[in-house]
Design a protein around this nucleic acid. Structure first.
Length: 243
DNA sequence: GTGAATGTTAACAG
DNA sequence: CCTGTTAACATTCA
């Protein structure tokens, strides 16, 4: 379910509750739920794959992991991990990780790492990559401290669009190609959001889950590459290997 | 029944 | 102590 764009959609779905008071918090989450009762949601935020419910003195951090789901104004059969009741409806989260963060979010999050954010900074990402010249780009893209919000779909699509082989080493990718990759990252993430919103994302994937390269009709490779060993789809023919 | 999937981290081995 | 690997968690679908 969750890469950065999907969490932005979650935030959109939650907006009716912004500035509203939590009447009652329930669920199996291992946090002090009582602290939420009668607190007003100051804002909903996202940082990559993190969904943030901001209150006056603390923030609830929700990570949907691989299988997390949520419901707005309805409930599943199972008990939610976290359920919030408002006067105007309810918000329920399932199969997710819930944390309570005390204090200032700015000390926890580097907003410039979030590819979905206006604050996203390619220069910052480049600086972080400088320390890891031997890292494969397919692993680097999934590093949430550098490219927060990028998941396996965005990784595969951005590399394909930028014509870079996933096994290329960070330090060996020419600056021009790296800039091109960053551009594809941001632009595909925006498309992801738009397509996901209208439920047509699958129709637009050109690499992830594909069998044949749409550019030159050569069979795609699917391999579990890099230290993350995540499924990686690529075309030997049109994606250049830098190493 | 089996395997895989848009993810992360604790535990363990060396 | 650092690094790399494995296990674990949790759900749904083909």
């Amino acid at each position: 379910m969750p890469e950065g764009p999907s969490i932005v959609l979650l935030k959109e779905a939650a907006m009716p509750f912004e500035h509203h008071k939590v009447l009652k918090a329930t669920g199996t989450a291992d946090i002090a739920l009582k602290r939420l009762d009668n607190q007003t949601v100051k804002a909903f935020k996202t940082w990559g794959k993190h969904f943030l419910i901001c209150f006056k003195d603390f923030t609830i951090q929700i990570h949907l992991m691989m299988f997390g789901t949520y419901r707005v104004n309805e409930a599943k059969q199972v008990k939610p991990k976290l359920g919030l009741k408002f006067k105007n409806g309810e918000l329920n989260f399932y199969t997710c990780k819930v944390n309570l963060i005390e204090g200032d979010l700015d000390e926890v999050y580097d907003w410039s790492a979030d590819v979905m954010s206006h604050s996203w900074s390619g220069a910052k990402a480049k600086a972080k990559l400088k320390d890891k010249p031997k890292l494969m780009i397919c692993d680097a893209l999934l590093d949430q401290q550098i490219f927060s919000g990028v998941g396996n779909i965005i990784k595969n699509e951005a590399l394909f669009n930028a014509k870079i082989h996933p096994q290329s080493l960070v330090g060996d990718i020419p600056i021009k190609q790296m800039n091109g990759l960053f551009k594809e990252l941001v632009s595909f993430s925006k498309h992801f959001l738009k397509w996901k919103r209208s439920n047509v994302l699958d129709d637009h994937l050109e690499a992830y889950g594909q069998k044949v390269c749409p550019r030159d009709d050569v069979p795609f490779k699917k391999q579990y590459i890099g230290k993350g060993k995540r499924a990686t789809y690529y075309c030997d023919h049109c994606q250049e290997l830098y190493k």
